[in-house]
């Protein structure tokens, strides 16, 4: 859009320009052409695996690794139909349902707890605030696998194994420092005048959070929710450790399941289900794309 407008402007103004200026314009056009060719090539290289996955989902199993063509020679929906039935007693729909059973509480708890903690850090005087903040940052740097064993033991003692609680319960305590950090940065960039005005208007700290901060933080909150949604849907290790019965398997484990059960994996089924599995993330992303981009840029640069 921008580029075409620039070109249009250039053409409009070309009349009455000196030979020198026309030469410069032509050079710019050629430059732009090469830039776009390179960008498109890079884009194609990155998108190729995804496109290959989609196309392979429609291929019969024997064709997948024998032909380079993206277009199936024999168009077949078998991958989708059989994949959906799965090799277990449940359909793939069950696994979708299971995924949302822990992803949605996880997202909601993350948002609520992170906003509250970030609000505290950004706006209140807490004794040793610097120390706590550094601790928070340190938890971001800590590899999550370090905590696996102690956490597993803890949840075992609490009798929560083979349920979704270990997956989302920790989120109620703002354990993901990255989100808290992101929201703190966003809040720091916001002028406090609005909050002061609201205090004079009669808000207490809690009303301030609900009526003023949360609406203003909306883009950042949406980013947090989106990140958490995508990461959780993709999470493999968590469910693998805590969920043991197949009826509770989320998508990530179910896909692995199809590879395990038969020796010669039905790749078209697996790829078909993988294609379906990324749909929720894509849909959610597209719905909130505007706020998402606003949120990550606003959080980092300014309020």
């Amino acid at each position: 859009m921008m580029i075409s407008r620039i070109f249009a402007d250039q053409q409009k103004s070309q009349e009455g320009l000196s030979a020198e200026a026309i030469k410069t314009l032509r050079k710019q056009k050629i430059g732009a052409f090469f830039r776009y060719v390179i960008l498109i090539l890079c884009g194609a290289v990155m998108l190729y695996p995804l496109v290959w996955m989609f196309s392979a989902a429609f291929k019969p199993n024997y064709e997948i690794f024998t032909s380079l063509s993206l277009w199936p020679s024999e168009f077949s929906m078998d991958g989708f139909i059989n994949g959906w039935q799965t090799g277990t007693e449940y359909t793939f729909g069950r696994f979708f349902w299971n995924t949302f059973m822990y992803v949605i509480p996880k997202v909601i708890l993350t948002v609520i707890s992170s906003v509250i903690v970030a609000y505290g850090f950004a706006r209140f005087e807490i004794p040793y605030k610097k120390f706590w903040f550094v601790t928070l940052i340190a938890t971001i740097l800590l590899p999550s696998s370090v905590l696996l064993i102690p956490q597993y033991l803890m949840f075992r003692e609490m009798g929560m194994l083979d349920s979704y609680l270990p997956l989302y319960l920790p989120m109620a305590f703002a354990t993901q420092g990255f989100f808290v950090f992101m929201l703190i940065q966003f809040l720091r960039g916001l002028p406090t005048d609005m909050e002061e005005a609201a205090m004079i208007d009669g808000c207490n700290s809690f009303q301030l959070l609900i009526y003023i901060i949360v609406p203003i933080l909306r883009p950042a909150i949406i980013s947090v929710a989106l990140f958490q949604f995508m990461w959780s849907v993709n999470d493999f290790l968590g469910p693998l450790i805590y969920i043991s019965s197949v009826e509770k398997y989320p998508i990530a484990l179910a896909l692995k399941l199809s590879i395990d059960v038969t020796e010669g994996a039905q790749w078209n089924e697996i790829l078909a289900m993988s294609s379906i599995a990324i749909v929720p993330s894509i849909v959610v992303f597209l719905m909130s794309q505007k706020y998402f981009v606003e949120g990550i840029t606003a959080g980092g640069v300014k309020g």
């Binding site: 002028p191 002061e196 005005a197 004079i200 208007d201 009526y211």
Partner: peptide
């Protein structure tokens, strides 16, 4: 006293309107 209990109203330099 808290600001709200002082019987005051304030106008700020950058307006401080609630954007939403």
């Amino acid at each position: 006293l808290a600001p709200k209990d002082r019987g005051i109203a304030m106008v700020f330099q950058n307006y401080a309107l609630y954007p939403h």
